[in-house]
């Protein structure tokens, strides 16, 4: 190629600089400056921004709502991982191994909620849980289980578990596709060999399918954990706003309330730092925990 170094570097700069500048202004700068804000007491106007050292962090440790928000987040992480993985694995095996004619139909239907807006999902499910009109309570009445009916989202005990079902409902499709991709890459000969050795279908699942699609399972679990820790507050905000009586607040929705409703921006940033640290630690621990020798037969 005949071009001078100068031309080459101009072109490189043309490709990279504008994007990097925008990315730095709107992503990197806010992240680092969030860290910086967490050492200030600040209600938003520039006049009363006061450096207070680690006071926000001490406040965080003494805030009685914080441990609840952490527990709520990890409750959602655990229930979503179990709910989504069990159902997605079951459906993935069913759709790949049984050669159903209508398998594409299920795949297309199950995936659709993944691309629906959280607002739409949240509002639909608010109506499903509606105490007087909702599907859940009407269904229970229809089955003669009137005692079980309750205002699901208005009940301190049941509000948080009620948020799991919509999340599983909306999340399954993506992981179904990921796992189906893994299973269809497993060579047929393993199953034939297992069958010759007299392994039942159940044994085939545990000894052949599961170890061979471990990479996909690992990716799915990590992805559910990350997206839940980084985004569970959206459905919380839509469906309960953290209530009743803080019983559904997760870290992100509490940050929103502290910063953008009560204007404690410094303290909000401190909660943000906590979210960042917890999600990084969680991902690291999970990766160590799930490290497992790659299986090859």
């Amino acid at each position: 190629m005949v071009q001078s170094n100068k031309q080459k570097y101009t072109f490189l700069a043309f490709c990279l600089i504008p994007t990097l500048v925008m990315f730095s202004i709107f992503t990197l700068y806010p992240l680092f400056s969030g860290l910086y804000y967490s050492f200030f007491e600040w209600s938003g106007s520039s006049a009363n921004k006061e450096f207070i050292g680690f006071s926000n962090y001490i406040k965080l440790l003494n805030d009685s709502i914080i441990p609840d928000t952490i527990i709520h987040d990890y409750f959602l992480v655990a229930t979503k991982v179990i709910g989504i993985m069990v159902l997605a694995l079951f459906f993935a095996v069913a759709l790949t191994q049984l050669k159903l004619k209508e398998a594409p139909f299920y795949r297309i239907i199950f995936f659709f909620p993944n691309i629906m807006s959280v607002v739409v999902i949240g509002i639909l499910w608010m109506f499903i849980y509606n105490p007087s009109l909702g599907l859940v309570n009407s269904g229970l009445e229809f089955l003669g289980l009137e005692d079980w009916t309750r205002p699901w989202l208005g009940n301190e005990t049941w509000a948080l578990p009620s948020l799991v079902l919509p999340s599983v409902w909306a999340g399954i499709g993506l992981f179904l596709l990921l796992l189906m991709g893994g299973i269809s890459n497993v060579s047929k000969s393993y199953y034939e060999a297992a069958e010759l050795d007299g392994a039942s279908e159940w044994q085939q699942f545990w000894k052949v399918t599961l170890p061979l699609i471990w990479p996909q399972i690992k990716v799915s679990i990590l992805y559910i954990v990350i997206t839940t820790l980084n985004g569970s507050f959206i459905i919380v905000q839509v469906m309960t706003g953290g209530g009743p009586n803080n019983s559904t607040h997760v870290m992100g929705s509490y940050l929103y309330q502290q910063a953008f409703v009560q204007y404690n921006f410094g303290y909000g940033a401190t909660i943000g730092v906590m979210i960042l640290i917890l999600s990084l630690i969680t991902v690291l621990i999970l990766q160590l925990f799930m490290r497992r020798e790659k299986v090859e037969y």
Binding site: L31, A259, G272
Partner: peptide
């Protein structure tokens, strides 16, 4: 750098972004 930004919880950045 770009790809790891996919895993970072952006909620921390939203407070400074608001003032920016």
């Amino acid at each position: 750098i770009y790809v790891s930004a996919m895993m970072i919880p952006m909620v921390l950045g939203w407070i400074p972004l608001f003032f920016l």
